[in-house]
């Protein structure tokens, strides 16, 4: 940083419906690294912002579901391309947020890119792996297809600001869900940067909505919102049991991470893909 010039500091904003608003409440908070360094100002989303995000997600979801799986794969792959093209910037912010050295941060960014690519490749395989035909004992053609659950609320992991974040967000997106995600409260910047990246990755507005703020404030609203069909409580910590109870009000699908799930380096398998798909089974008569 050159000392003879005052740097321009960016306030990170929310991503709602493809736009980057400040919080309607006007609130921001300072992100401070574990070593005390000031990392930036970010918007602090309100309940109302979250409500707006859910409305946007609900509106965007049918189109995202109706897009071809091939197309969804391309969009996710484009997201990976965009991260790759700005990997140094991501690495810088991951290093700052998570207090890694540059080499480790680069490895994390690589893993995050590869994770997104992995899920990009899943979009047109989910139906084949999770669906199929069922040999019922009668004159019927019967098949099961996985369909997206709908609008998914994600409480992103608090520690893993980029790799953990994409590992939670990409699978529901790959399956055709729209996502409203509450970023890591203390490490939101890599995810907000990712939000900016999506603006140039052809992710349709409303499909991915990213809010920075307090889990204690936003989590219950998300978990209780009847128009949210499922919640991923990976980053909810001690609040997870309460939020899971809140989710029962509208019989939401709830994903609770185990300790093993927080090891972001390992092969994630299909668990997160299966978490937010519904099996829809169609019977049709077979006759002349």
């Amino acid at each position: 940083m050159s000392s003879d010039r005052l740097d321009v500091r960016k306030t990170y904003k929310l991503l709602i419906n493809g736009a980057f608003p400040r919080s309607e409440s006007g609130r921001t908070y300072e992100v401070i690294a574990a070593n005390g360094a000031f990392l930036g100002n970010v918007a602090r989303a309100s309940r109302k912002d979250l409500r707006e995000a859910v409305v946007a997600a609900r509106a965007a979801q049918p189109k995202w579901q109706a897009a071809t799986a091939y197309n969804r794969g391309q969009v996710l792959y484009r997201m990976a391309e965009m991260i790759e093209s700005r990997r140094d910037e991501f690495a810088f912010h991951v290093a700052q947020s998570e207090q890694h050295n540059d080499r480790d941060a680069q490895l994390i960014v690589s893993a995050a890119i590869d994770r997104v690519v992995w899920y990009a490749g899943w979009t047109d395989k989910i139906a084949q792996v999770l669906g199929g035909t069922n040999p019922v004992a009668g004159p019927f053609f019967n098949f099961s297809i996985p369909t997206p659950t709908g609008v998914i609320g994600v409480i992103a992991p608090q520690e893993s600001s980029l790799l953990g974040f994409v590992s939670c967000v990409a699978p529901p997106l790959a399956a055709g869900n729209a996502v409203v995600v509450v970023s890591s409260t203390t490490r939101p910047i890599p995810s907000l940067l990712l939000g900016e990246v999506t603006a140039t990755a052809d992710v349709p507005g409303g499909v991915l909505n990213i809010l920075s703020g307090e889990v204690a404030e936003l989590g219950p609203v998300l978990a209780q919102h009847e128009d949210v069909d499922g919640v991923d409580l990976t980053g909810a910590g001690d609040l997870a049991p309460t939020l899971a109870a809140d989710a029962s009000g509208s019989i939401k699908r709830v994903f609770r991470a185990t300790t093993a799930d927080h090891d972001w380096a390992v092969d994630p398998g299909t668990r997160r893909l299966r978490a937010f798909v519904e099996t829809s089974t169609v019977w049709h008569t077979v006759g002349q």
């Binding site: 069922n134 019922v136 004992a137 099996t279 829809s280 089974t281 169609v282 019977w283 049709h284 008569t285």
Partner: peptide
């Protein structure tokens, strides 16, 4: 809906997944 019957209704089979979406359960 978790089950859609086309030109038939209320058919069940052990090989055919059954269950709901939304407030019909999971």
């Amino acid at each position: 809906a978790g089950v859609i019957w086309s030109n038939t209704y209320n058919k069940f089979d052990p090989t055919s997944p059954f269950g709901g979406v939304r407030e019909s359960g999971f």
